[in-house]
Design a protein around this nucleic acid. Structure first.
Lengths: 155, 155
DNA sequence: GTTCTTTTGACTAATGTTGACTAATATTAT
DNA sequence: ATAATATTAGTCAACATTAGTCAAAAGAAC
């Protein structure tokens, strides 16, 4: 709390707006100015904190009147939602993105907190630590997909 | 008392804070500086004195604004049971024996059917299939222990 | 003196910040 | 219309800032 980095602050600012409206549209240079960072840092914040795994869709336009629009994704039915997560997982996934997937499931109400914690425990660095990062990411993807497939039946 | 080593002193310092608040967040280099030790000694103190068996959960982040956060958690009443399962899992476990572990948890009432199914999905042959049976069994063991450790406390 | 614990530091990994360069789109000039 | 220019956003790689790992050395306990 005492020493938050600026990316976290920008993330919080945007999510606060998104808590009240469905989407937020910004001018990149304005936000960069407002928080006193270079414009490309806004891209960094979006790339690391507003991914599809997190449940956000980002559209943008360049040139005069350009913008970046972040939209909180509306979940379709459960099955489509799980499909989209399976696609997002793919055949490799980092811990960071894996966490986002589990969080999405939780926020969508597909799983509860206890179930989320079990999933997280199964894919965290304690569990997957072969020494080969690529292999870890592959196994993490397989575990997630296996669990996601199971969630299809129970829902 | 007089013969305390520096690790004990750092441990006491952190636990004193934890006696009053639920968690403590530090910057590793700051604490290292404060006690005049190398930063990695903080990791040593945490690894030896703030384990999940002791009732602590540790989270951290690297990079700018990085931190180490130690949280005191409420341990459940199932410690001996979990310990025995962790021992049974060891560092390798077959699918068959992994299934027995999950079944034990279910029959003891530690997890419900849905949770059991999530665990099973995470350790079945869909999820773990590297082509190297020994490696699969090793990873399966790590996943199970990671989940078992999470079942030690309320979250 | 052997074994276990602690201390240390070199190396690694993750995350965040910055800026130069590129790409897309809109506006203006011809 | 077309070309030139202006105005946006995107990418990428270098650099900065944290924490993690591991094993050797030192010290303590027995």
């Amino acid at each position: 709390m005492e020493n938050q980095n600026i990316s976290d602050i920008i993330e919080a600012y945007l999510k606060q707006i998104l808590a009240e409206s469905q989407e937020v549209e910004i001018r990149r240079s304005e936000i960069a100015n407002q928080f006193n960072v270079v414009p490309s840092q806004i891209n960094y914040v979006i790339k690391t904190r507003f991914t599809i795994q997190d449940g956000y869709v980002v559209r943008s336009k360049r040139g005069g009147g350009g913008y970046i629009r972040i939209e909180k994704v509306k979940l379709l039915d459960n099955l489509d939602f799980i499909d989209s997560l399976v696609t997002a997982v793919g055949d490799h996934i980092t811990r960071h993105d894996g966490l986002a997937v589990v969080r999405s499931l939780f926020e969508a109400g597909t799983i509860n907190r206890r179930e989320a914690n079990i999933m997280l425990a199964a894919i965290d660095k304690t569990a997957l630590n072969t020494g080969d990062r690529d292999l870890d990411e592959q196994i993490r993807a397989q575990i997630l997909i296996s669990v996601l497939d199971h969630l299809r039946y129970e829902s």
